[in-house]
Each structure stands twice: as structure tokens, then as C-alpha cells.
């Protein structure tokens, strides 16, 4: 099983190697990187390319490690007991399987995405150490042990909001998705907009990378913003010349709002453009 990138996802050689190492050695792969560089998408693409089922577990600040294994729905059972429902006698009726349990049970090898692990409580990764290591856990209520039929391939993404514990990190492979350079970006855009006119793309990339260089932006536009913007440019049928004015003056590119989503950033940018124009 080797991942070689996919139709819709351009992976750099270092990322490919990290994914394949994780596949080969069956270690979880921890992915970090700027927002919008395709961290979450990676798991979907790998699952698609390798023909594996994907189980997604999106983490929130209130998520507990236990919820990924199973939950005991005590409230339903309590309600049923008050109504005199017969199902109450078997506690197994009230065990709700979590994402990891489902993946462990899967007939064929699966991919599990633990998305934004840093959103959870600081103890969350530690609570999953043994489960990820051994790929098994014990269900206290029914006294059974659930073991993975096939070790699933685990992708974990993080936005760096919390530091992850060392013990957890040692068990993972790690990859930091760097912001793509111009060449890679060109390939990414080609994959998403195969018919895009060369001239428009060239101008658009120029504008995009210049925009990223603007000092003081709160949120630099990332890959997904570029793709959105291109989509709009194509939809509105904007000619490449419109991205640059004829007299060589600096202009605010059309639909810049797709790339600068922060009002202050947009304001700052417009002011800079205005200043640049006056200097000419």
C-alpha cells in the first residue's frame, strides 16, 4: 500500500514519505500546519486513494477520550426504566459505539481522522495512549475487550493551541505542512482548475503571493482562500488584465474579500494600496 498523491490533492515528497512511513510502520501521523493547507483533507484523500473507509472524529473543547471509544447512555436507560421498557435489562442496549470502536470493528483496514486534537482538554491525548498503542480497550459496563481487527491508519491534526504530551508525541510520526511554494501552488491550482487560462493564473498567483507579503496582516490568505478566490474569478469571468491596471498603478484586486477575511486586514491593505498609488 503506497500513497502517491491523488487527483485532487498535491502532496510534496516529504509529506508522501511521512504518510507512507505511517502506513508501513502502522504509527499514527500527527499533522500540523497553517490553517488552510489541507491537513484535514489529507486523511480523506489517503482513504480515497487507498480505498479504505474513513472514520472522522472532530474534537471540541468538551470532547472526552472516552467518547471515541464508547458512551454509556445512562439517561436513556433511566428514562426507559421509568417507562418500564423491557430493553432496560440488557445494559449493552445503551452502549453507544464511538469512532474508534467502529474503526476497530471494520471488516477491512480503515483510516481514522482525529481532527484538531489540540481543541480538547490537555489530558485528552494521554487518555488515548494505550488505545492507540495496543489498538484495544476494555468496556467496563459489559466486561468485554474490543480489539482492532486491522490496525487502522490514524491521522491526527493539530493547530498548535495546546502542547501535546511527550509520551504521546513519541508514539507518533510528525509532519509540518509548510506553506506551498510557487511551484507547488501552481500544481495545486492545476489540479483544481485544469482549464484555467495561463495568463489569469500567472497574474493571480502573483497577486496572491504579493498579498501574503503584506506586513502586518492578521491572517495571511492560505491555499484554500486562493482556491476560493480563483473560483470566484472564473465564475465572474474576470480577465487577467483586470488584476493589474494598465497604467502600471497598484490596484485593489477584484474580489479581494475572498482572500482577506478580516475587516481590519482589508482596511489595512486598501490603505497601503492607496499610499502606494500616491507615491507614484
Amino acid at each position: 500500500m503506497r500513497f502517491e498523491g491523488s487527483q485532487a490533492y498535491v502532496a510534496t515528497p516529504d509529506l508522501l514519505l511521512a504518510v507512507n512511513a505511517a502506513v508501513r510502520l502502522q504509527r499514527p501521523l500527527l499533522i500540523k500546519g497553517e490553517p488552510g493547507t489541507g491537513k484535514t483533507l489529507l486523511a480523506e484523500e489517503v482513504a480515497g486513494a487507498l480505498g479504505l473507509e474513513l472514520f472522522q472524529w472532530h474534537i471540541k473543547s468538551t470532547t472526552k477520550a472516552q467518547q471515541g471509544l464508547y458512551e454509556y447512555d445512562a439517561v436513556s436507560r433511566l428514562r426507559d426504566s421509568q417507562l418500564g421498557d423491557g430493553r432496560v435489562k440488557d445494559i449493552a442496549n445503551y452502549i453507544v459505539k464511538g469512532v474508534l470502536w467502529q474503526a476497530f470493528e471494520s471488516e477491512k483496514p480503515a483510516v481514522v481522522l482525529i481532527d484538531e486534537i489540540d481543541k480538547a482538554d490537555i489530558e485528552f491525548p494521554n487518555d488515548l495512549l494505550r488505545e492507540l498503542d495496543r489498538m484495544e480497550f476494555h468496556v467496563y459496563e459489559t466486561r468485554e475487550t474490543v480489539r482492532a481487527r486491522h490496525r487502522p491508519l490514524i491521522f491526527i491534526t493539530s493547530n498548535n493551541e495546546k502542547e501535546l504530551p511527550d509520551a504521546f508525541l513519541r508514539r507518533c510520526f510528525f509532519h509540518y505542512i509548510r506553506f506551498p511554494d510557487r511551484e507547488t501552488m501552481q500544481r495545486i491550482v492545476d489540479v483544481h482548475f485544469p482549464g484555467l487560462k495561463k495568463a489569469l493564473l500567472k497574474e493571480a498567483l502573483e497577486v496572491f503571493f504579493e498579498l501574503r507579503e503584506v506586513p502586518g496582516l492578521k491572517k495571511k490568505p492560505s491555499t484554500s482562500e486562493l482556491l476560493d478566490w480563483l473560483k470566484l474569478l472564473v465564475a465572474e469571468d474576470i480577465p487577467p488584465e483586470a488584476l493589474r491596471s494598465k497604467d502600471g498603478k497598484v490596484i485593489v484586486p477584484p474580489l479581494a474579500g475572498a482572500m482577506l477575511k478580516n475587516e481590519q486586514d482589508l482596511h489595512l491593505f486598501e490603505r497601503l494600496v492607496h499610499m502606494a498609488r500616491q507615491n507614484r
Binding site: 514519505l17 512511513a21 508525541l169
Partner: peptide
């Protein structure tokens, strides 16, 4: 790097 370094 993937294997040994766990923090960018």
C-alpha cells in the same frame, strides 16, 4: 525528520 522531530 518525520520520525525524530515532533515540533516544527
Amino acid at each position: 525528520r518525520t520520525c525524530l522531530v515532533k515540533d516544527e
